[in-house]
């Protein structure tokens, strides 16, 4: 196996193009396990963890722009406003301190795991993902991201993730269920991003899920059922019932179905109730 510590995106893309069995490594917290289990056919590892342009995190006007090779702990050191608490919560629950110090937001998306903890919040924020290959540069919406990359991102790299700040009458929340507090792979996760109008009705809503489908995804059916409704207990019930129907359909015949049906009650309720608490404080 060849290895190389790359200094620029350009150089990285050239290697990816010329070496068909090459693979990007940054945090390496998943990839190294795969390599050691011989589950990955790789003959060239290219490290992007020192490429300066991928390691920046900044706020430009109303947009947060996060380089793909920024480790979670560096993102968590950045100050986010109170109504983006779901983003902070999601990142704080990834792995362990050691994993958060190495694992990167780009890697979390690139390996296309349905349990990726940063994905539901990024979906709910309608984030955009910058992708470069030797042939093109493209900005893909999170909602299209998984279809775009298919099983994984080959011969290209994620360069940045960006999302807009949300107004004060909006709140992003995140909840996950794992078997324990730390180092827990999500068994089910939900993120909601709700905007209320002056009558406390839902003006805009994003609901995204993790670990109940092939990829993390937007739950449009729930969104369409509760938009324009007042955010109250009835709507929480309706959302849960709708999600249960979706899960029953999606996980039909799976042994995890019953577990996830009862898990969704807690996870979704907790997101919506946390949002209500925020709006009450405002």
């Amino acid at each position: 196996m060849k290895v190389y510590k790359s200094n620029s995106v350009e150089e990285t893309l050239e290697i990816l193009k010329s070496a068909p069995k090459s693979k990007i490594i940054s945090g390496g917290t998943d990839l190294i396990i795969e390599l050691r289990n011989h589950n990955s056919d790789v003959d060239y590892l290219v490290d992007i963890s020192s490429i300066e342009e991928l390691k920046k995190i900044e706020k430009v006007n109303d947009e947060y722009i996060i380089g793909s090779a920024v480790p979670f702990s560096d993102i968590l050191n950045f100050k986010f406003p109170d109504n983006l608490k779901g983003f902070v919560n999601a990142l704080n629950q990834i792995g362990s301190p050691q994993i958060r110090n190495r694992g990167t937001i780009g890697g979390n998306l690139a390996n296309a795991s349905t349990s990726a903890d940063s994905a539901p919040v990024l979906l709910a924020l309608d984030a955009k993902v910058g992708i470069s290959t030797g042939d093109f540069e493209k900005e893909v919406s999170m909602t299209d991201f998984y279809d775009f990359i298919g099983e994984g991102l080959y011969h290209g790299i994620i360069t940045y993730i960006k999302f807009k700040e949300i107004p004060l009458n909006s709140y992003l929340s995140f909840e996950k269920l794992g078997y324990r507090k730390s180092l827990a792979i999500s068994k089910l996760s939900i993120s909601t991003n709700i905007t209320l109008n002056e009558n406390f009705e839902i003006e805009k809503i994003f609901v995204a899920s993790g670990a109940i489908g092939k990829y993390p995804m937007r739950e449009y059916e729930v969104e369409s059922k509760i938009i324009s409704q007042p955010l109250n207990e009835n709507i929480i019930q309706l959302s849960i019932e709708t999600m249960k129907e979706i899960i029953s359909e999606r996980l039909k015949g799976r042994s995890s179905l019953n577990y996830k049906l009862s898990a969704i009650e807690y996870v979704l309720r907790s997101c919506l109730e946390e949002s209500i608490q925020y709006f009450k404080r405002c």
Partner: peptide, 13 residues
Amino acid sequence: GKLVNSCLIMAFQ
């Protein structure tokens, strides 16, 4: 300066 798992980092990195 950061706590890491040395089993999850390649030496060349």
